[in-house]
Amino acid sequence: MLASGRHQDIFVDSVYTTMAVCVAVIGKDNSPLYIGGIGNDTSTDNELSRQWLVHTALDALEERLTTTNNNTSGSNSNTTRTDMRDLYLGLLYSTDTHKIYGYVTNTRIKLVLVTSSTSPSGSNIRDAEVRTALRRLHALYADAICNPFHLPGDQITSQKFDKQVKNLMLNNV
């Protein structure tokens, strides 16, 4: 089965108010820490295409990171500029059916947000909304790993985090 061939039919039941269909937290060694998707369909195929999508987004993310690094160190290595570096990387790439946005924390934790270009709420999303959502996700992530029982580098299994992220995806609050 070709995964992307099914991109139209995954996340079918994403509600119209949904802003994102999938959110992922990826560690600094590029291992997935959390992948959450909207939709009742928890079938393997659905999960698989979601993971492929997020995993391949890492290519664009890494490319973006290396180029920004080169820019800052190359031309004017202004320290304030590096400090104030925008963590939000913007649209990484888009397929026929999805748009993928990226965000990198200072500790190289990567946050990925996927919107559906087929649903009206997903396709009309503004950049600022995605930025806000990813900042909120960053905050949620920070809260989650503050848990002393969480091991850095382990997958995030917190139910509270999962619920909050799902809310974030649904309501766009």
Binding site: D29, N30, S31, P32, T44, E47, L48, Q51, W52, H55
Partner: peptide, 10 residues
């Protein structure tokens, strides 16, 4: 190596 176990399982 990248610990994408779900994909690795597949």
């Amino acid at each position: 190596k990248e610990k994408w176990w779900f994909l690795a399982s597949h």
